[in-house]
């Protein structure tokens, strides 16, 4: 096994271009457990550019190499994302696991993903000759499947600045620490003059990728908040065909689905 140790992002993309088969190593918390077959490891953890969190007027930019610990200690990171990060694993993992790793593992149980989907996050991918920006839902194709070719590196996550008057997040795990999610739910909304003007809902661990259905969200925009309770049954029915969890060693399909529907209803009832 050969190690590649770039110090700068530019160097990293050159190395990746030259060593297309090299696997990317960020925090290592997942790679070290799975030990995917490879002959070259490209270590990203010395690259300071991947650890930058900054902003401009419209957006927050989060370097893919930021650890959970670093995100929790940065004022620019949206509180709802921090809430999800607090529920990840335990300190020893938070200290090395990275947001880029969480995204690139592309697990439907990835704890930051429902939040990033709901926030409409974009990812910026870099290679020797170009930068590309995609919405996160276009970047993640399925379980451990990404729209990332063998010359590219995930550089940063771009989150549009946006205030929500209603935020709701719940992870359901088997215990209060060191738990992989059985299901997770995030709901974000804005209400103006009694009307729902922005609604974002995402579910984790209930399908092969995070579920966010913009058509359903749009359907209820402009609805009077007082009328919302009468639509709850309809909204749940709208989501029914998208929430298709499985039975596995951690939970059951029926539990996951029931809990998601309960959380959805609870979120909707609490909107104000």
């Amino acid at each position: 096994m050969v190690g590649l140790y770039p110090k700068y992002l530019e160097e990293a993309v050159e190395m990746k271009y030259a060593h297309k088969e090299a696997k990317l190593y960020a925090g290592g918390t997942d790679w070290m457990v799975r030990h995917a077959e490879c002959n070259q490891l490209l270590f990203l953890n010395q690259i300071q550019e991947l650890k930058v969190i900054n902003e401009d007027t419209d957006n927050i930019y989060i370097g893919s190499g930021c650890t959970y610990f670093e995100l929790l200690n940065n004022d620019l990171v949206p509180e709802i994302l921090k809430e999800a990060i607090r529920g990840i694993a335990a300190p020893a993992i938070k200290n090395i696991g990275t947001i880029g790793g969480n995204i690139c593992n592309a697990s439907p149980a990835g704890d930051t993903l429902p939040i990033l989907y709901a926030l409409g996050a974009k990812v910026e991918v870099i290679s020797v000759d170009k930068n590309k920006i995609f919405p996160i839902e276009d970047f993640i194709l399925g379980v451990r499947k990404l729209l990332l070719n063998d010359t590219e590196i995930l550089k940063r996550i771009i989150i549009q600045k946006h205030e929500f008057s209603n935020t709701y997040y719940q992870k359901v795990g088997a215990r209060k620490s060191q738990a992989l999610s059985k299901a997770s739910f995030v709901g974000l909304a804005n209400i103006q003059e009694g009307k729902l003007v922005d609604l974002r809902i995402a579910f984790g661990s209930v399908a092969s990728t995070i579920i966010r259905v913009k058509q359903i969200e749009e359907k209820y925009i402009d609805i009077n908040i007082k009328e919302l309770p009468s639509h709850i049954g309809e909204i749940k029915a709208d989501y029914d065909s998208y929430i298709i969890p499985i039975d596995d060693q951690r939970s059951t399909a029926s539990y996951r689905k029931a809990v998601c529907m309960n959380l959805l209803e609870d979120f909707l009832r609490k909107l104000k």
Partner: peptide, 16 residues
């Protein structure tokens, strides 16, 4: 055994 790891067989942690 379906829960043959300490990840899937959950014993209580200090927070539980």
């Amino acid at each position: 055994i379906r829960q043959a790891s300490i990840t899937d067989y959950t014993i209580p942690t200090a927070k539980d």
